[in-house]
Each structure stands twice: as C-alpha cells, then as structure tokens.
Design a protein around this nucleic acid. Structure first.
Lengths: 150, 150
DNA sequence: GGTAAATAGGACCAATCCTGTCCGCTTTCC
DNA sequence: GGAAAGCGGACAGGATTGGTCCTATTTACC
C-alpha cells in the first residue's frame, strides 16, 4: 500500500503538537496525554526526532523537548527519512552494486531513479507546518504539489 | 523506507520482458528463465497482472501470456495498485471514518490527502514503457516528473 | 480420444519486519 | 540527595509479506 511506517505518522503528529506554541517546552509524558498515544511510544518517537535534529531534548527535572526549528522549515521528507530511512520505492536504488543477483537480467536497472527523485522532490516541498495546518502555510490543496505536465 | 512490495518490483520486470516484442506470447516458465526469478513467483506475478487486466492469459498447451495493452499505456500507478492496493502514505486516508481512536486529538486529520494525491499523480504520469527503456519513451530524466514550483 | 503443457485459483507455511514496551544510566532542578 | 526527565539499547510479540505447492481447467498435438 506504499505506506510509511506508523512511527513516521506519530512523528508528524508529535511535531505538530510541539508547534502549537502555547508552551515552548513539552515533556514526553505531557505530549502522550495530549496526543492520546501511549507514553513509551511518544518517548521513542521523540528520541528519534532528537537524533535527527528536528527537536532538542533538555535533560533533568523540568526538562522536555522543544522544536529545533519552526515547523515551516521541516520538510516532510526529513521526517520520513528519520523514521523509515532513505526515500526510495525499490530496494535496487542509487548505485545498487551487485546486491541483486538478477542484476544482469533486469531490464529496469537504474530506471527507478527518476521516479524516486520525483517522489523525494514532492515530499521535500511540503512542510510539517502545512500538515499541521496551524501555520503560515498555504491553504490546501497545495499548488506546489501539482505537476508541471498537467 | 517507503518501499513498495517486492512483488510490484517483479511485476514491472515481468511486464518489461513481455514488452520486448520478439514474441507476442510468453509462458510463465519461459519468463522465469529469462528474468532469473523463480518460476512459482513469476506465475503468481502473472496471475495478478492478468486479474488486473494488464496481461491476457491464454490457457492450454502452447498457451502463455501477452500484453493486453502496449507498455506505454500502462502507468506505474496501475501496477502498484494491483499489487499493493491503493496508493496512500498513511492508514488514515480518504474518508477514514472513526477507525483511528485518537481521531479527535489528531492535529493532522485529513491533511495527508493532498500529499497522497501528489504521489499518485507522479506515479500516473510515468509508464512501464519508460521504466523498461526500450520504447518510445522520453529520455530520462523525465521532464514531466519535475515539479512546477521549482 | 488421450496425453502433455500451460493457465487459474486458492491455501499454506516460514521468515521478515515493525511495533510497542521495558530496563538501566545520565542529567538537572528543587 | 531525591525526584523527574531525557538517552540509549535490548527484546518479545504480532502482523504482514514472500514464496511455494496443490488441484482444477483449458487447449494443442499425436
């Protein structure tokens, strides 16, 4: 179904909550109650977001997480990459040196790259702010996501 | 990794081989040897392609499969839909009535639709012929896959 | 008319991947 | 010094997918 992992979905939701701006700092337990997600899961999501540099974690009592950048500067592609790894539709991507045993027989060798690039490009153009909907984002549907050849 | 299923990948490869045009008819065992894929898998792929109307199966001895349409008329989105189901990045899509228990808490409710539409649009624009590369396709990289806002 | 070859359809098992959770450690405020 | 919170890793359960096999049906050839 071309689905991205559930963690990625959670990541966007958590980021959106973090950007709601009433408080600059949110704790993982607090975010858990506000999102309706289980607390250990939210903690895991925040850890991944912190490692990827989208949020900053402040340790110690009265600690918590805050956005490292405004949501409008976080492209969706970055969230997906943090949780799901590189954005690519097939396993045989970007180089793909000899890891496919039918390589010499494969008629589509290397042809997937432009497709992957197109998907990547689309996901780089939309930001989490636009998904959250409470920002300076353009109203949906996104004009920049329409394709040139239409 | 935003990957589509391996079967889909096989589907494209098998379609590409079917379109190589030397013979109009190919048997599943024959395609298996020509693609380097195990025969039962190729058979399964062909059955799915036949159900989806992209290839036609001719039963009986001297039977086989042939393309129902030229590859240039088979968009990549159709192959993906046949193997992986509807093209959507998240589970909460297109309607999504009450199947998400945190629905009332979710700040990104319904916002994914334009993203999904953009991906769908990109995958409808490219055909299997272009992936196969032996056709009347435009040379890569595909100009129609570039986004408008660049 | 019989046999062989090939598709059609479905069921099945194994393996992989993902999810969700938990633990111990470190840091910081009160 | 204690409590609260983040950090890092490990781990088991479950769902999904991949790959295989079996049987029935159809058709060409002898």
């Amino acid at each position: 179904m071309l689905r991205l992992s559930r963690l990625t979905d959670y990541g966007v939701v958590v980021l959106a909550r973090l950007g709601e701006g009433d408080l600059p700092l949110h704790s993982a337990p607090g975010l858990a109650t506000r999102t309706g997600l289980p607390e250990p899961t939210v903690a895991k999501v925040l850890k991944i977001l912190a490692q990827a540099g989208m949020v900053e974690g402040l340790r110690g009592a009265r600690g918590g997480y805050r956005l490292a950048r405004p949501l409008a500067h976080i492209p969706l592609s970055e969230v997906i990459t943090a949780f799901d790894g590189p954005i690519a539709l097939t396993a045989c991507v970007d180089g793909g040196n000899g890891q496919c045993e039918s390589e010499h027989l494969c008629p589509v060798r290397g042809r997937w790259d432009p497709v992957n690039d197109a998907i990547r490009g689309a996901l780089e153009k939309i930001t989490v702010a636009e998904l959250a909907g409470h920002s300076t984002a353009i109203a949906l549907p996104h004009p920049e996501l329409r394709l040139a050849a239409e």
